[in-house]
Structures are given as structure tokens and as C-alpha cells.
Nucleic acid binder design. Structure first.
Lengths: 224, 224
DNA sequence: ACCTGAACACCGTTCAAGT
DNA sequence: ACCTGAACACCGTTCAAGT
């Protein structure tokens, strides 16, 4: 009989199989993470969002880890862009550090995506190159500049991991229970310093916390 | 009849169902992670190692996350123990920071276990309490001491995450490919600073890297 | 009270077969 | 060359039923 009726349930797919584009797959994966969180990103869900079979993804990404590395790389787009003229080296470091933090914050679970992978793509490499460059211009040796860049990046990743974990907790139903548990544990007799720290520990002023930590490192650099 | 025979450890299931002990489950889970890595730790494998059905675990841990938090808490045992007498505040900070780093390094993927959870158990709380205490003794306000403690912990976690990722990469078959890729990318024309940084970036002197970063923070503190 | 057994609704990954 | 369809060997979690 006539071949006209064969495409019944396929609301997207028409006659030919869809051809998959790698950059679209990466941005779609990031969108899925933004919508439902990293734990909900599966190869099968991504395939469905791309209107493709799950197995097809493995023609473009060897494993899920490879996909995650591509996502981490994509997140850093623009982070190494040119710095405004006339900044002091302190301001240059602050600018670069702020860019990385914002890049990780821009996507839900962005820090986890970044920390869980090891990208050697151009965005990642040029970011590190730029940061090491700024540090070398302050007079640091290549080794000291590299170690300092690593220190700064490790602080940013650790900080943002915590910041996004706090965000996730704030949106979850566990928040009251955790806060109660924490408050109950803050017995001044047992944890005298934690009791004094409660206001700061439960504060959501992550901008302030970040600035404090980064300034500590920058100050250490100046004292060299 | 005496109760003498009931304590036999029954390494296979005998007549009665095995009764599960929570502390044993946590240490067994850490052992499984040490043996096969965090990605291989499943509730079903842990159940099998405990000679119990998978569903039984849910009577003791609400979710896998709860188990991971208990593991993170267990890893920090002893980290807040008393400091030797006669240390300067710098040495006290270095000692506490080193203890946390070593605690995370002691188990495979320890930093990932720690970073992925949010423990409010006594080991975690008393570690933070002790660190904040040392910082307050240097004259810092409760807020500054808390923020500084967070900075130090975030650096340690970020650093150790990277250190264990490098360890995992070193043991994997991807190492030569990654190293080649990195070396190829180190074109002095494109990434001049990365080229100068290669020796440091590919070095495995994590003790040195850690000391450099921590000293930067401590120096920043001294300049306050 | 605590565990078993079995199920539910998924996973990452592979690969012969189609076009 | 690139995708589909179907399978393999698993997952976390729930819950009626046993003891």
C-alpha cells in the first residue's frame, strides 16, 4: 500500500535519520544539566533530546567522560579573553579569577562538571596560559607563577563546589533538617569556635567569602 | 547451653539472617573504594561484601548519598586531634592542613568522596572548630577566622581533587595520549606561558605544590 | 525488628543490521 | 558513512512477605 502513513508516531524524525552535530550535543547536554542537574544527565536522555538513538552518541564521544570533558571545555569559552587596559596586576588576577568563578556558576553543577574532568582543550589551556602570564609579569619565576596559578584555580574550584552545593541544599527539602542539625551541634561547650562562626558559616555572602580568600592569596603574593 | 557459640563470625550465611552493623558497612565501603575506585562502589556490591541483600542497606542509610556522607565523616577521624605543644600558629595551620590533605589521600578518590557530600558529623565539625580556633588565636575576628578557614579548606580540597585525578590518570591507559596532547598543545607561539610552565605542570611534586599554595595563604594572613 | 526476594524504572556501552 | 534496534550487564530504590 501507499508509503504515506509510515511516519505516524515520529513527531520530529521524518524520512532520513537525523545527523548529529557534536557542538549541538554539548550545548544540549549543558542545557539538560541546567534544567535537571548533573545527576539527571544520562546518555539516553541526551540522545532523546537530540532525537537520536543512545548508541549514536558513541560515534561522537568515546565515553560519557569524554562528553563531560567537552562540556567543561565549553563552559570556559571566553574566560581567557583580553583583559581591559590599565589594570594593576592585582586587578588582573581578580578579573581572571572572577571570570572562572562566574563561568562555573553560570551552569547548574558547573563546578562539579569542571572538577570531574580533565580538559586539554583550547579554552582551558588558554585560560591557564593567561593566568600564568599575568603572574610572570609580576616578576615570578615560571615555576612560582605556575604553582601560584594552580593555587588560585584550586581555591576557585573548591570554593565554587561549596557554593553550588549550598545552592543545591537551599533548594532541597533537606535544608531545614541540616540547619537544625548544625545549630544543635553548635554547643558552645563542645565547639566554641563554631558557635562564634555560625553567622559566617550560614551566610550566603559568597561574593564576600570569595573576595576574602582571593585577597588572602594576592596579599601573600605581594609579601613575596 | 551457654551463649558461647553465637559470636562466630559466620563468613557465609548460616541459618539466621546476618545482622548488619553500620560502622562495619562504612569501613567496608571505604575498602571497596580503595580496591576499585569510587565509580565501582554500588549499593549492590556493598551489600554483597556485607553478605546481605541490597535492600537491607536502606534500613540503615536512607540513600547512597547518606552512605557517602558517613564515609566522608569516617575519613576525617583523628584530624582534629590535639596539636603538639610549642607550635607557632603558622606551624599549627600547616599541621592541620596537612592532616586534612593526608586524610583525603589515605583513601582512593578520597577528595571526591569528601567534595561530593556535606557531613555535619563530629569529625567534620571538630576539624573546622579546631582550625577556626587556631586562626582566632592569631587575633582574627570570628568572621575573618571563619572565612580564612573556609579558604584553606577549599584550597586543600581543590588541590587534593587534582592530585588524585593525576594519580588516577597516571594509572590509566590514557596517560600517554593526554601527555602527548598536552605537549603538542604547548606551542610557544600559541601558549607561551604554558610552554614555560610545562615542567611544573607535569611535575608530580604535589608536596611542593601544596606547600607553596598553603604558604601563600599563610603569608597573606601574616600581612594582615 | 530486621532481613529476603523480587520487582520497577532505569543506566552506560556494544554491535549487527539497515540505509 | 552514519544511524537504528536490540541486546548485555548492570544500577538505586521500594516493598510485600517471611522469620
Amino acid at each position: 500500500m501507499g508509503p504515506t502513513s509510515t511516519s505516524s508516531s515520529a513527531q520530529r524524525s521524518r524520512g532520513r535519520p537525523r545527523k548529529m552535530a557534536v557542538p549541538e550535543a554539548v550545548t544540549t547536554a549543558l542545557r539538560l544539566v541546567d534544567e535537571d542537574g548533573l545527576d539527571s544527565l544520562t546518555m539516553r536522555r541526551l540522545a532523546a533530546a537530540l532525537d537520536v538513538q543512545a548508541g549514536t552518541l558513541y560515534r561522537h564521544f568515546a565515553t560519557k567522560q569524554t562528553l563531560l570533558a567537552a562540556m567543561a571545555e565549553e563552559m570556559l569559552a571566553g574566560c581567557a579573553g583580553p583583559l581591559p587596559d590599565g589594570l594593576t596586576w592585582r586587578e588582573q588576577i581578580t578579573e581572571l579569577a572572577g571570570r572562572l568563578r562566574m563561568a562555573l556558576l553560570r551552569h547548574r553543577d558547573g563546578a562539579r562538571v569542571h572538577a570531574g574532568t580533565h580538559s586539554v582543550g583550547p579554552n582551558t589551556l588558554s585560560y591557564t596560559d593567561t593566568l600564568v602570564g599575568v603572574l610572570r609579569e609580576t616578576g615570578l619565576s615560571p615555576e612560582a607563577a605556575t604553582r601560584t596559578a594552580l593555587t588560585i584555580v584550586h581555591f576557585i574550584v573548591g570554593h565554587t563546589l561549596e557554593e553550588q552545593a549550598a545552592q543545591a541544599l537551599a533548594e532541597s527539602t533537606e535544608l531545614p533538617a541540616t540547619l537544625t542539625l548544625l545549630h544543635a551541634a553548635l554547643d558552645p561547650g563542645t565547639y566554641p569556635n563554631l558557635a562564634a562562626a555560625e553567622a559566617t558559616l550560614t551566610s550566603t555572602d559568597f561574593v564576600g567569602h570569595f573576595a576574602h580568600g582571593l585577597n588572602l592569596i594576592i596579599k601573600g603574593l605581594a609579601g613575596e
